[in-house]
Every structure is written in structure tokens, then in C-alpha cells.
Design a protein around this nucleic acid. Sequence first.
RNA 1: GCCGGUGUGAUGGAAUUGGUAGACAUACCGGACUUAAAAUCCGGAGAGGGAAACCUCGUGCCAGUUCGAGUCUGGCCACCGGCACCA
Length: 833
Amino acid sequence: MFFHSKDHLELMERDYQPQVIEPEIQQHWESEQTFKTSEDPQKPKFYCLCMFPYPSGKLHMGHVRNYTIGDVISRFMTMSGYNVLQPMGWDAFGMPAENAAIKNQRPPAAWTYDNIDHMRGQLKRLGFGYDWDRELATCTPDYYRWEQWLFTRMVEKGLAYRKKARVNWDPVDQTVLANEQVIDGRGWRSGALVEQREIDQWFIRITDYADELLDDLDSVDWPEQVKTMQKNWIGRSQGVEFSFERKGSTERLEVYTTRPDTIMGITYVAVAAQHPIAQQAAAANPDVAAFIEECTSMSVAEADLAQAPKKGMATGESVIHPITGEDVPIWIANFVLMDYGSGAVMAVPGHDQRDWEFATQYNLPIKPVIQPMTDDPEYDLSQQAWCEKTGITINSGQFDGLNFNDAFQAVANALEGMGIGRITTNYRLRDWGVGRQRYWGCPIPVIHTDEGLKTVRDEDLPVTLPEDVVVDGSGSPLVGRRDFVDTIDPDTGRAATRETDTFDTFMESSWYYARFASAFSNHAMLDKNANYWLPVDLYIGGIEHAILHLLYARFFHKVLRDLDLVESDEPFKKLLTQGMVLKDGSKMSKSKGNTVDPQELIDQYGADTVRLFTMFAAPPELSLEWSDDGVAGAHRFLKRVHTLVSEHITEGNHSMSGEVNLDTLSDAARDVYRKLHETIAKVSDDIGRRYHFNTAIASIMELTNSVMKFSAQTASDWRVRSEAIEAIVVLLSPITPHVTEHLWSNLGHSQSLVDVTWPKVREDALARNTLTLVVQVNGKLRGRIEVAADADKDLILTMARDEPSVAKFLEGMIEKKAIVVPQKLVNLVVAPA
RNA sequence: GCCGGUGUGAUGGAAUUGGUAGACAUACCGGACUUAAAAUCCGGAGAGGGAAACCUCGUGCCAGUUCGAGUCUGGCCACCGGCACCA
């Protein structure tokens, strides 16, 4: 059975035993403090950050994928000479802890801390090179006190303010529901019909930064799709704001339009159900009141609003058209958003599709005022609105015959001249409502006094969240906690009450990246070290965060900058968005029962196999289809590598060292050696620039296959073989750090692989004497030719024409054109003679 | 509904700047080893036609640009992500 002597067996075990070697290697990293990071001005820094997890209980495959990507890049950058920071922490506030508390009769804090302990263990078992000294959990007072401090600064600067906002109210559970807790208009636990309530909330003026948030997108190295989504989300538009005179009233009606060129096509105006005009009409007319009631009971989610059937009701009121002086009826429409513009729109059904649908439904007139320059079969206002900006104004009196830009200006000037309008910039972006009527979040540091609302003084921070609570699902337990609520107004010494709302959990995740860089600062939110590490060089996380989280974090960074806490303008220089992990074609979820527990795979195959498979199965930005067979295949490859290296050691020639002399190599050795350096080039580019680990692994597999087929005879053969085998180990090490560290040490190296310099490409090894070119005739592949690397175009064409498999397609043809693409192909374009 | 993506063999994917479609794996089939199985190793394979050489077709669908299109453009279909209180 065994062909090797006992001595060799002692040299290295034959079987790949991840369960033995992985904990050993991890212990070594821990005792050596391998991943402890400090500021070092001598080296270029690289801050690699993965979106931190919500501690839901145990890691899922999405985490494993995300964090493996970050770890591979971090290890690669370390080996490439960078001072790398790779921290990890916990996005620890949030609803699931409250839900678990109701279910398990356990306080959210205890549940959360247990989950963190378990998941930290899992991350360590996967071998990620984090600097655990910087670990943070957002639910600890050490962390959130600085968030409270920042909020009080925002209040001082006028960046935070109070405004009424609508929330989903569950009348049975007596609690505010998140949008996802409302299913088909009913509370998910109680099943009661959800009502809408208006309550006072804290808002942050993200819109003050709208221009900068939009313009600075040009300065970051992010995927175009994410930048486009953010641009559209911010939605900056140039338009005209003007007011109508209301008939029989001294009040005016403000509207905003991006299409002032169509002003002569107004046939009605539409206001939101929450608009004061609608409220007034409701007071006078019970039918209108009933309609508004119906509108306000609609979901607050935009997706529901946009898909709801269009409904409206005339108010009986009207406005006077500013140019024509005609009466224009005011309607209430359920598709007009109170939060956008002034909550009222001028309706031009001829040239706006929503206005058209509404007008068609309620038999309101449609007046064409724009005509296409050239015939357009789509132009039929009885079928649909025509919304292009490429036409000419018609039926517009003094504004007739103008293109979009001229009509825009002419109408804007006219309205401005009348003193009722002006050109303005408008944004789709709304201010950020940060108040939540929930317990498990950061307390808003505000007290209610007989002198009004006051922020808590710096010296009284943090406002600590009590952790010993009972959560029963009917409102926040904070409300009834006298020991929390009752306080004293420090200005007057009189009784006051604490705010019981907590912050949106996006608040915590909007600045954690900065705190990691300043993790040991006890006396300030951030210290000078933040500017050593920031901005984050590479931020990695799910595409689902493309808008909200990433926009809020960018906004916070600019606020921090304006408070002189950071120097940079943007928090994340480069962004890598990863796709989801799927099984059987759909997202893994408990309800579908198609989850894969990474822990079971680690137990069965080891961390390296799990890491290798997740990196090999797909490039990061694509969704990853789970495959149990694929995992077994990844494990098989590691066994092959393990066998290759251990046999190499056993054969005793692994000490064959020294520079390979290209001139003395046999053809076979030369080919393996070229392949080796091609692989180094490919893997370096794939990991360092493209972040395509699947192709990096594929090329290492190819190299491994070549080396296994290559039988070394001479001393120089052995040198090639040794260099190739060591390179395989080094190139794989960022992906599968344990087995490679183990093999590396068995190859006789005392230095840890983490400290090894990434291999360099030998350019002279890449050179080829001859090249294979493809020959096409009329674009179809017809043959191949082998040419000298320095062959000129004429020689290549002659050889191509003479190639028998090509020549037969040239018979009786006239050559019209010949294309030679260097290093690649020849295309002969021919036609019958 | 709006905004943004994705679509390639039986499967995951490769083809990086418009230049050989299917690298590398997985599953499958055949062979070696074994009493046998597992493991391991070697080989095969997009579809259709043909004894073979070889030919034709082929990257969701329909058009277009080009000497040449998986890649670019227009239209469509399906699926996925986000839509402001899930994180």
C-alpha cells in the first residue's frame, strides 16, 4: 500500500487533514498576533473593509462569500507590500433581536451578545485575517455615545429638525410597523388592518448635501451601475417653480415642473391627499373626506403607491392659468407625492404619461402643445402621451414654434416677469427620517422639558439603553421605564422626560468604517489615526446596499469632514459589490428551506475548501449558484495539491534551488516554466486588479495539471519543478491560507507565508519563438498557421493563403480584403470571381 | 410602476480592448487499479449530418452596425436587486 519509507512518512503526512492543520495554523496566527495592525508611515496603507454583519445567529453563505473576498484581497495586498487594515465588527441594533426577544422571552441584548460570540468563533474558524483588537459592536455605549454626540452637533448646526411623518400603525399590537412587517395591508403578527399615523419625527437634512453627493460620484472608483442608481435616486432636475392664483381665494398654489415648455397644455392641476387644499376640500365635502381617508390608508411604500390604480377626485376648486387666464380644475390624485416638490403638479396629459392616464380615466381634456419635428408613428395622443423633448411647441400662442430649450426659457422668463415663478433645482432625494419607535436601537439624546426639546449635554453622554427589559411586541418597553424616562433638566433643575425614540440602524452603519480606523480613541469620536487609514481603499458588500446604506455613509462622511474629524471627501474610494448566493436558482432563505449552513461544510471539508469553492464558483459581482458537488470538487483539488507537494518533498529534490537558466531547458521544461510565469502574471492581475478569483484559481489548476504531467529528469528540470510547486503554494495562499501555510513550512521555510513577498513575473520566460494564428475566410475559421514571432504581414498572408485547409476556400474567388490582427488572426475577405 | 442589473453546453462558469465560443471545474460515459466498492489515475464529450476527412448550426428572442458581434446599437421576453421603517 505505501511505497515510501518510514523516514519519509515522518517527513510529512500523506493525507490532507484540514481538521488537524487548520486549528494549528490559526493558533499560530493568534499567538504571533499576525493580523494586528498599526499605523506605519513607511509603507503604503490599504484599508480593506467588508460590510459588517447583523448578528442574526450564525454566519450564512453570503457572509462567507463577502468575507472571503475581502480576506483574499487583504492577504494579497499584504504580500504585495502594503500595510493592510482589515477589521470586523457587528451591526448589532435592529428588529430581529426584538422579534427573537418576543419569541424566546429573552432580552435583545443577551441574544445579540450570544450571537456575536458564536459568529466571532465562526469567523475565526474560517481563518480571516482580522485585527480583532479593533472589533466593535454598535449596541455598546462605547460606540453609540459618539453617534449621540454627533447628533447633538447636527442639531446645533441645524442639520437635524423635527417634522411630521407618516408611519404604519398596528392598532392591535399598539405599535409602529416597518414596511416589511406590513403584509397585504395587515400587521404581520396581529393580522389587523394597518392604519397610517402622523407623528413628530427627527429628520436629518441630507438634502443640504444633495449637490455634493451627486457631483462627488465622479470622483469615486465605483461600478457605473451603482453610481447611476445613486444619481437617479438623488434625482436632480432643473425646472420651474411657480404659483397659480386660486379662484375665490387669496391663497396661491405652488407647483414645480420640469416641463414649463408644456405650460399651455395644462388641463388640470393635481394635489396630494395630504395637501392643505385637499384638507380644506375635505372639510367642506364628506365625499372628498372619504376619498382622502382612503388615500391615507394606503401603504407608505413607494412601490405600492406607484402600482396602485390611479384614483382621484375633483375638489370643486380651481386655479387661474397664469398665461391664458382660463379656469383650471384642481383634482386630488393618489399618485401625487406630498414629499416631492410642493405636493402639487400642473397636469399636461398630452405630454406626461401619468397625467394622460388620469385624464383618460376621468374624461379630462387632452391638449396637444408639442409636435414632433419629423413624423413619429408613436405620436397619437388618443393612445398615449408623447413625452419626448425633441418637438416644437404648438397651440401655445406667444410660445409657438419653439424647441424645448427655447420654450423652457421663454416660459420661465414670462412667469418670472409676472413675479410668480423662477427656475429652480429640485431633488427627488428626501430628508432622512431617523426616529424609530423601537427599543433595540441607539437612544436619541434628547429630553423633553417645560422649555421645549433639548439635546443632552456632552458630559451627560452616553444616554445608555437599559438592557434588562421584557419585550412583548406592543410598543417599545422604554416608554414604561420610569428609570429611563424620568430625568432632570440640567438648566432648570426641574423634572424632564427622555425621548424614547431610537435611531434608524442606518445611523450606526454610516460611520463604523471611520471608527475602525480610530478604534482606541476614548476621548473623541475619531482621532488623527482616522486620517492615516481613511478613506477605505476597497469596500466590499452586497449590491442590495447600492443606494441607502452607501448614500447615508457618504453623507455622514461629509458631515464628519465639515466638523474637521476627517480630511477626505468620500469614505470609500473603491467599491466591489457582490451578488447573492443562490440555491436551486433562488435566494437562500429559511422559509424556502434551501439554506446551506457553512458550519456543516467547515466541519466536513475544512475552511480552505469552503473558501476555495466560494471563490471558484463565480466572479464576485455575479450571483453564486450553490453546488454540493462543486464543494467536493474544490476539496479534491486541494487533495491533489497536497499530494503533489508531499510527493515532491518525499522525492527529496525539493531543495534543488538557484535561478533557472532558460538556455539550458528542454522544450518540455521550457513550456512548464513559461506556463508558470504566465500563471503568476494572470493570478496577480486577476486578484490585484480584476477581483476575478475564479479565473485565478482556474489558471492555478491549469499550472498544477501541467506540473503533474511534467516528469523531471535533469537538474534544471527539477529546478523548474521546484519553482513551479512553490509558486502554486504561494499563489494559492490568499485563498486557502491554512493548507498552503502548512505545505510551505514542510517545504522547509521558516517564514510564514503571510510575510512572503508576492512572486514576480520573469518577462524573459514569457517569450515565444513561434505563434499560432487563426485563419478565417469571410469570418469563418478555416485553419491555423504556425509563424515565427517576428514574421511580417506579407509572410503571414502568404502562409495563410497557402495553408491547404484555407486554400480550398479561396479557389475561384477574388480576394477583396485581408485583415491581419497581430498575435491573433488573419481574415481573408473573398467573393466569387 | 420607476431605477439598476443578469441571460453562454446537462450544471457553475471562461472568452479582460469587437478577433479561435465553451478555458477551468461539476455531473455523465468509457478505461486502468481493486475480490468488490470507495478513493485515485487516464481518456471522451455543444447540437445536427457523415465511415471518415470534414461540413452546417449555435451565446434568451427579433432586427441592425462591422471584414468579423457572446461583446456595440434599437426593440422585445424572462429572471434578480432597490424603491426611503429589513439589514
